[in-house]
Amino acid sequence: MSDNPDFNVSKIADLARLELTEDEASQFQKQLGSIVAFVDTISSLEVEEVEPTAHPAPVFDCFREDAAVQGLERDQFLRNAPDSAFEQIRVPKVVDA
């Protein structure tokens, strides 16, 4: 099923913000083509009347007091940042002038 027309690795990788080399794209197209064909086997299950399960042991509505608690210190957080300035994380320009 590596010729599955619906499954275009490069298009999906774009959605996932993942740059692929040409070699990766052709290798993944082939490998994931057969995996997609395999997982497609569940299409034949008769489940129209079945409720979906998102979670194995559902816990609903976890509340806590709306009280301030100590979080991470700024320097503990910033020490892992690839780039920082003025005690903040610095990133390339996001907004056009």
Partner: peptide, 24 residues
């Protein structure tokens, strides 16, 4: 990539929702 695909527009019902039902 596989996870993005099964959640992508047009395919999430076919794969993700179907799998959640299979999980039940």
């Amino acid at each position: 990539i596989l996870g993005t695909y099964v959640l992508s527009s047009g395919y999430s019902a076919k794969y993700y929702l179907q799998a959640q039902k299979a999980r039940t």
